[in-house]
Write a protein that binds this DNA or RNA. Structure first.
Lengths: 161, 161
DNA sequence: CTCCAATAGTTTGACGTCAAGATAAACCAA
DNA sequence: TTGGTTTATCTTGACGTCAAACTATTGGAG
């Protein structure tokens, strides 16, 4: 019995008129997200990165050569606002992990690219990060994880189409 | 195909040495949590509340009479730090939605209780909130939601035991 | 051509959160 | 008792985030 079940039991006692089944599902997603974020944060901060910075570096790394994207593209991948992305890029630039140049084809735009140091760092941290993610999902069998992916994917698609 | 599938495809192309299956599951939880938080926020802010304040009021409400808990208990239910909870209670107290008294039985502790205004507000907002949660889970059938609950519950229990 | 709406990023100000340290009371072993 | 440890809460300072306003550039309608 997880903590969410206790929360639902309280609501059923206090507000039996409400059908709180969806609250249970949503609550589990929320609490799981907190536990997972905390679990991933340790590995990331151990390398002097923040979760926010890691997110951007990883997006550039997996985009493939030349490991460069516009702030707009980074925003679309990472689900943050433009102001947040400006701030993230500022800090990564200060740290020497990315560069920011004007887009030669569009005077409004710019291009954010991994530096050699940024590439080396993210490429190493991602390895540990993935290993850590395996640990964090250990409680589920491969089959269970696959069934979970299918259900989460269907739900997620309802928001991202 | 959700956005996470595209992210995994990029990693598989760039770093075929990594098994990114767990990243997919964790990524879906994270993105779903963002969509759900945004979807719930609108209903909550429409009543002049923040998600943070709602969280505390709801915890007090479902605890049942006399709708009063210590900051420690609120911290345990809501997964935030003590400093965060102090700040949340401060704001709710300013808004006249809760009161804070010293615990007569323990001079270190205190008791946070819903005011009549706080009770009336949360009791109304929760109704709309639950209806909204039904909307947010519409993409899944009852059976799918139940299977999802079982898998999420098992995973969550691995962190909360 | 000339505007003017749309687009790309940045800036600003406020807020929620956290980690770490401070304070005060309670507990407990000697 | 007494002194040290633990517990409960608050304070402080820094950071990440957002919404909204702002600047600069582009692109299309007339």
């Amino acid at each position: 019995m997880d903590q969410v079940e206790r929360i639902l039991a309280q609501w059923r006692a206090e507000r039996p008129d409400l059908d709180v089944a969806p609250m249970g599902t949503i609550g589990r997603v929320k609490r799981l997200n907190v536990h997972l974020s905390q679990g991933m944060e340790r590995v990331i901060t151990a390398h002097g990165l923040t979760a926010a910075g890691f997110d951007v570096l990883a997006t550039l790394r997996r985009a493939g050569p030349p490991h460069a994207l516009s702030p707009s593209a980074l925003i679309a991948w990472t689900m943050v606002t433009s102001g947040t992305m400006t701030n993230r890029i500022d800090r990564l630039e200060e740290a020497g992990l990315v560069t920011r140049r004007r887009d030669p084809d569009d005077g409004r735009g710019s291009v954010v690219a991994l530096t050699d140091a940024g590439f080396a760092l993210i490429d190493q941290v991602v390895g540990e990060h993935v290993a850590n993610q395996h640990r964090l999902t250990e409680a589920l069998s491969d089959d269970e994880r696959a069934r979970l992916d299918e259900l989460l994917g269907k739900w997620l698609a309802s928001f991202e189409d």
